[in-house]
Design a protein around this nucleic acid. Structure first.
Length: 596
RNA sequence: GCGCCCAUAGCUCAAUUGGAUAGAGCAUCCGCCUUCUAAGCGGACGGUUGCAGGUUCGAGUCCUGCUGGGCGCGCCA
């Protein structure tokens, strides 16, 4: 299934070849200058050098030899040798018809499907879901859907943070609270009554204690971590109670956000692989003793950086830093777990590619892990990719905080967005004939669409400013706008059904019909860009241009009020637009209500 | 100190291997509801792409330097 740009490129390549020009310069793409043409080819400029001719001459000969007149009229030449193409109404109509008849709405699939693990979400058992997990979850979910839609076999893995030092720290806090774990009945009762809210309160308090220089607590927590990982039944039992409480709450939060996983695994699931892995690393001669810990050096020859020590002296050290595999207490660090998780995934999913949708700030860490994995021969370096993203900031440009300065819980954030959605619905008097259930469902969908679209319309790598009022706004490039466009089309299709009006063969005559068809045609390009770059914002952008193109069509081309073949054609175009818009939004993880 | 990332319209953000006149949304201003949902549509205004050089037919994009901001730098994750 080729879009118009590919069809034009193929036709143009044939012309280039027939003129003895290198076909690689024949690429045709959407025009930057809609006033001059719908598609453009810049290849005459690039081909000029090797052909030993001037660009305008080449452009002239290409135009003269153009023979795909069923596709586009003879290209015009502008500037220093740009070729501008205008597609024929028939070719546009054909393309629109193909999209209308295609369940995938014109989207292609990958030539060679791969096995891909997408690691995202990454909630921490001791912390509970807050806005910090929003981007990882939203972007990861979208990447998972995009990869699967393109034809790859995909596993999304939550990779719960349920195994590190934080678990030892929370266990230590509980020990302090109970005055030790000797009283079995007391411990059981406490574990029974444990809530996520309590865990969320305990962890930051103790983390602050340790950070503030409480060496004694730190060492006890490290020992507790080592005990847990060493298989202590008591520690394991306490850990399990904490994990269960946390997991249940997080599953609810993920469901509310419309984020799902194929594998609900965590760091602890990779733990059983660690002893053998450490032996293996040792056997391969990769482990070294260093300051009581065991490390793997990952820097290549000549890779160094300067480092300033605490006493002020500057020394030359290897770069990247070595990966710390076994701490001086004998416990696993997060790098250890990440490495073991690679071993686990290679064993279980045999992935061609593992994508880590994790905060950009962890780039150095992943570089260490990836190099270590490659060095140990577990997987090739190119099969591991960190899909990093920027932070979500408050209006002050700093990482998002509540007015009180704390972290905003995910559940509260969604609640705030829903409340704004309810206000909007009521202001527009949409709620009159809605049941309470439908009203709440629509409010929820509008809220999630607003939050997700705001996030996904920015390139993932850059940080963005979170402004709920703007995201939920009446006007503009927002999630609610896109839902509104989709819902308008649904309304038309319902009315057509009631009136017994059926879609028919598509013709493209009106300027707004051309624009809509060209927007529909651009879907595959947006999809492949999003796929190749692991960047959903290309699809968010597409959803917006498509919605706008439809809106222009809607305003200029009456559908039901028109008649006969024109009405049937426009109805088919509207149906195609709805199908593709719904699909695009689904790839972003956004659900469309029936009406709003 | 060393390293990575970023700097685009008043604000929030785009710009596919380097391509023509750098695009959207918001805000401001002007039009459009007796036609299918006006959460809409059309138009106007708005730019020395942080600064200075370089590479070439051509630079927001590549290179060097500078300024300003963010982040990271073994026993947290």
């Amino acid at each position: 299934m080729k879009d118009l740009a590919h069809a034009l490129t193929a036709a143009n390549a044939a012309v280039f070849s027939s003129l003895g020009l290198d076909a690689k310069h024949a690429e045709v793409r959407r025009s930057d200058r809609p006033d001059l043409g719908e598609f453009q080819c810049n290849g005459a400029l690039a081909a000029a050098k090797s052909a030993g001719k001037k660009p305008p001459e080449i452009a002239q000969s290409v135009a003269g030899a153009w023979n795909a007149t069923e596709l586009a009229s003879t290209p015009t030449i502008a500037g220093p040798g740009f070729l501008n193409f205008k597609v024929t109404p028939q070719a546009l109509a054909n393309r629109a018809q193909v999209i209308a008849d295609d369940a995938r709405a014109g989207a292609s699939v990958v030539e060679h499907p791969r096995r891909v693990v997408v690691d995202y979400g990454g909630p921490n058992v001791a912390k509970g879901m807050h806005v910090g997990h929003l981007r990882a979850s939203i972007i990861g979910e979208s990447v998972r859907r995009i990869y699967r839609f393109r034809g790859d076999q995909v596993w999304g893995d939550a990779h719960f943070g349920d195994w590190g030092f934080q678990m030892g720290l929370v266990i230590t806090a509980l020990e302090d609270e109970l005055g030790g774990f000797d009283d079995r009945a007391k411990l059981d009762a406490r574990l029974q009554s444990l809530t996520l809210e309590q865990l969320e309160a305990i962890y930051p308090a103790y983390a602050a204690k340790v950070k503030g220089g409480d060496i004694e607590t730190r060492d006890r927590a490290r020992k507790a971590t080592a005990a847990l990982q060493g298989g202590s039944a008591l520690h394991r039992e306490i850990w399990k109670a904490m994990r269960d409480v946390s997991m249940a709450a997080q599953k609810r939060d993920f469901a509310s956000l419309g984020v799902d996983f194929d594998l609900w695994l965590g760091e602890s699931d990779a733990d059983p692989l660690i002893p053998d892995m450490v032996k293996d690393l040792d056997a391969k001669g990769l482990l070294e003793e260093d300051q009581g810990a065991r490390i793997v050096r990952v820097a290549g020859p000549g890779e160094t950086k300067k480092k300033k020590l605490e006493d002020g002296t500057v020394v030359e050290v290897e770069s990247p830093d070595p990966l710390l595999v076994v701490s001086s207490e004998g416990s696993a660090m997060y790098g250890t777990t990440d490495l073991a998780t690679i071993v686990q995934r290679v064993r279980d999913q045999k992935p061609d590619l593992i994508l880590y949708v994790v905060d950009q700030r962890q780039a150095d860490h992943f570089e260490q892990v990836y190099r270590a994995a490659a060095k140990a021969g577990y997987i090739a370096r190119e099969q591991l990719e960190h899909v990093g993203f920027g932070t979500m900031n408050g209006s002050d440009g700093k990482p998002f905080k509540t007015r009180a300065g704390g972290v905003l819980k995910l559940n509260d954030l969604i609640g705030q967005a829903e409340e704004k959605a309810r206000e909007r619905l009521k202001e527009n008097e949409i709620d009159a004939d809605f049941s309470k259930e439908e009203f709440e469902d629509v409010a929820h969908k509008v809220a999630i669409a607003a939050i997700k679209f705001a996030d996904l319309s920015n390139f993932r790598g850059t940080s963005y400013i979170f402004d709920l009022d703007r995201f939920m706004s009446f006007e503009g490039k927002t999630g609610p706008y896109l839902l509104y466009q989709a819902v308008r089309i649904k309304s038309i299709l319902r009315k057509a059904e009631e009136q017994g009006v059926a879609p028919g063969p598509i013709t493209v005559e009106h300027e707004a019909e051309r624009a809509l068809t060209l927007a529909l045609d651009a879907f595959d390009g947006a999809l492949t860009a999003a796929y190749d770059k692991k960047a959903p914002h290309f699809l968010a952008e597409h959803a917006h241009t498509l919605a706008q193109a439809f809106s222009g069509f809607f305003a200029n081309c009456p559908i039901l009020p028109s008649e006969g073949a024109v009405r049937a054609s426009r109805l088919a175009l509207a149906g195609a637009a709805l199908k593709q818009l719904t699909l695009t939004l689904d790839l972003l993880g956004i659900d469309v209500p029936e009406r709003m």
